[in-house]
Simulated scan of single mutants.
Amino acid sequence: MLKIDNLHAEIDGKKILDGLTLEVNAGEVHAIMGPNGAGKSTLAYVLGGRPGYEVTAGSVEFIGPKGQKLNLLSLEPHERAAAGLFLGFQYPVEIPGVSNVQFLREALNAQRKARGEEPLSGGEFLKLAKDKAGLLKLDMDMLKRNVNVGFSGGEKKRAEMVQMGILDPAFAVLDETDSGLDIDALRVVGEGIEAIMRAPGKGVLLITHYQRLLDYVKPDKVHILARGRIVTTGGPELAQRLEAEGYEEVAA
């Protein structure tokens, strides 16, 4: 579903990704772990199409929800989103003056239009939003507030997972979604990811520093990213080994 081959990328002339190769099949959840500065967030930004990141070599093939093969790197960020790619940020941004409900309805209907689908009415959208907010234990009153303004770290992450549930992407790249979460919020977010994205036609690339999120989001494979490329791949036990031994031993 997502095939990354020999990907090289840099920012401001500094090489970050150095020959990264990775493949995630439909129905799979893959976790990426690695030390600070290894290139985990850079990988997420490159896949999402963030400006400033230059791909100097390699390719990324993405299979959209209708089975079409796409050259992901040739698409603009909004085209990637319309094709079914979702990027979850480590630090979700605040958007003063724009309510969550307004933002999410416009985003969803823009994607539906790009796919040739009819827009949802106000009533249809509110029903969908209420359902997804309930899944993440987020009060609907929170969705009436401005996007992330005045939200705690945990509320921002839960609101972002509600956004993912509403947009219903084919593939999610989640950059340190567990960052800033307490124990209860971690469980809610982890279970939400499983409920929304664990399906035969979907895939997840979950970037995390710690094994704790993987207690709730069960990965099919765990990859260790170091020095700009994947250096070790294994099952869930690899994350447990990493927790016990540290990066120096596992990613040597």
Rank of each mutant, 00 (worst) to 15 (best):
Y91N: 14
M161V: 13
G37A: 00
G52I: 08
A195M: 12
G228W: 05
T233R: 12
Q68L: 04
A107N: 03
K130F: 12
V222R: 03
P92Y: 13
V149T: 14
V98N: 04
E248F: 00
A244P: 04
Y45H: 08
L85A: 10
D175S: 02
Y210C: 03
P169E: 01
G246S: 00
D220K: 14
E76F: 06
L206A: 02
K66F: 01
R112E: 12
I11H: 07
V29K: 04
V98E: 03
V250T: 01
H78K: 10
P65R: 10
L126V: 15
S99E: 12
K66A: 10
K157Q: 15
V46L: 02
M142H: 15
K15V: 15
G134M: 07
H30K: 05
L73R: 05
G27F: 06
A133T: 05
I196K: 11
N148E: 11
P200E: 12
L128S: 01
R229E: 10
K3A: 11
E124L: 09
G13F: 09
L225C: 06
L85M: 08
D168V: 00
I224N: 02
V231D: 12
A159K: 13
V162T: 08
Q211G: 11
G49N: 04
T56N: 10
A172M: 09
M197C: 12
I196W: 07
A26E: 06
Q68Y: 05
D5Y: 06
L120R: 08
D18H: 14
P236D: 13
G203P: 06
G37M: 01
P236R: 14
G134Y: 02
G228Q: 07
V217S: 07
G39T: 00
A199V: 08
P169A: 01
V60Y: 10
M142V: 10
A82D: 10
H223K: 11
E94I: 08
K127D: 08
V204I: 15
A185E: 07
K113I: 14
G19E: 04
A170R: 11
E28Q: 06
M197W: 07
G165N: 01
R105K: 07
Y210Q: 02
G134W: 02
R112G: 11
L22W: 04
P119G: 10
Q240N: 15
I63M: 09
K3M: 07
A133D: 04
G13E: 09
D141S: 15
I193H: 07
M142Y: 15
V98P: 02
E79H: 06
G123A: 14
G234M: 13
I95T: 06
R50H: 11
A199R: 15
G122F: 13
